[in-house]
Design a binder for these strands. Structure first.
Lengths: 215, 215
DNA sequence: GTCTATACCCTGATAGAC
DNA sequence: GTCTATCAGGGTATAGAC
């Protein structure tokens, strides 16, 4: 909890500004002012603006568990409910910002049209970390989901739903599209569970007798 | 097919550039050069850069049927297949551009962090037009989908899947996340259809005789 | 490592002749 | 309606003293 050093102050300031205004619309001067650092110091630590972005993306990536996933999952044990608890956290962010909130990674991913490989790799790493967390839940759900279901693909689809939902909620300035996306996702999950072998049926009942025709 | 007038050239050039580089990264000079128009002419037609954006968004909106929806649906009659034909068109765009393609509306929606009301309304109008087209399909599918299904919500969810899928495909520079999203969406649709009243059961069989118990 | 000053370029927008 | 010239401001990045 000590006062952060210059380098850290720069990264945190850039993180906030890139999120609020986007990368292109944030000037180095903005970062300098916000971090209370002088121009020379920034260029001492970072070759240029883009390297600041890389550091920001690394920080997101490194903090995703502690800052996003774990808080969302606190008090939620059921693995499938954890998936929706994560989505609920985004809903909260939207609600707190009057639907101005945007996923910082998603926004950067669409703002930067021809990003360098280094930037793209870090964006991808963030998506992957998010998807991994959901994937864990789907694995933990075990037999509650169909055995042949591609759990990695479904995990990425949950991210898809979140990003698309946030995008529309931002645009309409209305939570209902986000809620609708979550509801549809939930409906899909319900159907997947319904057709998975019900665990009770597996244990309680012996295999159904073949063709008896009478009760 | 006559040579487009100055105003149109400006809008078309801006449309292309905003799509390729984003709004913020496109300078008026870029538009001027690309449209082969001089500075004075632009400011004769448009008060400023943002009004050019408004015109671009209006043009997208006005052309969405003729340029996007109708070509995607050509030769596809089944209403539910039309939904996936529309998605297939985005897949094609991704494939054609080595996964560089981005939905122009989605990209602008996330690039512009605090857009004016006028801009936001036009972004929303574009999303709404897209969703409307899918909604029509879901209506046309009639009894093949569960009666109580919220078709408008599902239509928006299809957009969600498209936007999220495109975002990830761009970031990973890999079609497989897009394909995965479509596959999951298709899986959801399959389950919805499976539980709807099978149309054959409705037409071929007369209403089931009540409790006859013998053939 | 930090500071100030500044080079140099590109931005959106305007002025005014034609 | 179209053209050229240009303004005022902000952008990134650098130089060089401390």
């Amino acid at each position: 909890m000590a006062a952060p050093d210059t380098r850290t102050r720069l990264i945190l300031a850039a993180m906030k500004l890139f999120w609020e205004k986007g990368y292109g619309s944030t000037s180095v001067a903005d970062v300098l002012q916000s971090a209370r650092v002088n121009s020379g110091s920034l260029y001492h630590f970072f070759p240029g603006k883009q390297d600041l972005l890389l550091a920001v993306l690394d920080l997101y990536r490194d903090g995703i568990r502690r800052m996003l996933i774990e808080p969302a999952w606190r008090g939620v044990e059921d693995p499938l409910e954890r998936v929706f608890a994560l989505l609920a956290r985004y809903r909260q962010s939207l609600a707190d910002t009057e639907c101005t909130y945007g996923c910082p990674i998603g926004s950067l991913a669409l703002e930067l049209h021809e990003p360098d490989l280094a930037v793209r790799e870090r964006l991808a790493a963030n998506f992957a970390a998010w998807t991994d967390a959901v994937h864990e839940c789907l694995i933990a759900a075990g037999e509650r989901l169909p055995r042949e279901l591609d759990r990695r693909e479904l995990a990425a689809f949950v991210l898809t739903g979140m990003e698309g939902g946030v995008m529309q909620a931002r645009t309409y300035r209305d939570l209902s599209t986000f809620d609708g996306a979550v509801r549809q996702l939930r409906a899909y999950f319900d159907r997947l569970q319904r057709e998975a072998i019900p665990p009770r049926a597996l244990r309680a009942r012996p295999p159904a007798p073949r063709r008896k025709e009478r009760r």
